[in-house]
Design a protein around this nucleic acid. Sequence first.
DNA 1: TGCAAAATTGTGTCAACGTGCAAAGGTAGG
DNA 2: CCTACCTTTGCACGTTGACACAATTTTGCA
Lengths: 114, 114
Amino acid sequence: MDPQEATKCCGPMDELLDAGLFKALGDPTRLKLLSCLAKCSRPCSVTELTGCCAVDVSVVSRHLGLLERAGVLSSAKEGRTVFYSVRYKPLTEVFRKLAKAIEASRPKGKHATT
Amino acid sequence: MDPQEATKCCGPMDELLDAGLFKALGDPTRLKLLSCLAKCSRPCSVTELTGCCAVDVSVVSRHLGLLERAGVLSSAKEGRTVFYSVRYKPLTEVFRKLAKAIEASRPKGKHATT
DNA sequence: TGCAAAATTGTGTCAACGTGCAAAGGTAGG
DNA sequence: CCTACCTTTGCACGTTGACACAATTTTGCA
């Protein structure tokens, strides 16, 4: 198949390759927040999470909001504090499907797959 | 565990969460190139890949170079044309490990995992 | 040797992004 | 009410990133 034709036909990868998700994960500070949140294994507030990285609270708030809009986190307001949690299921699913799709599109034993 | 402490201890996710990789995948044009390359199931030249997206050849060249440096693609020069291929194995592995790590850090049956 | 093709690199432009600081919502408690 | 706390938003600044176009390099071929 030529790349020209490949553009038109859409395989299982196309709906999985979401630029928004990857862009959200493409920042060290946001990655740190996600890692922290995952290691805590519990919902954390914005102020708590601010202790994870060396930036202002306002910046953390913005990052968390972005991660939520990207589908990485979920938030739950409780009084005046907002608790963020990792959306484990969807995130796991996306990466698992992605691995599967890439694996599937690999031409087995035809080309070098370095 | 508090986010403060979580910052210091490094779990299996920390080495997997590479901002460089996600940043490389966080652009629609680059994603299109990757998708095209995967659907073709064969190495493609820069000129060929240019047919995939509506940008200049120079831009495509830069994108492909970036994807290669990020570990997504591999290149093989043949005469005056350069063929790019998807690095299926490492890419699949990263996403599979990522899915595993996120799944593992999920607190089973304790909090809502929306 | 000269020319054409393929790819890269240089340069300038414009939008998007990350950040800090200050101000502004909301919300619980005295 | 009034204050303190948590969070969000507005604004300004500097950096990064994507892009087009032109020039350059490298290679194959007549």
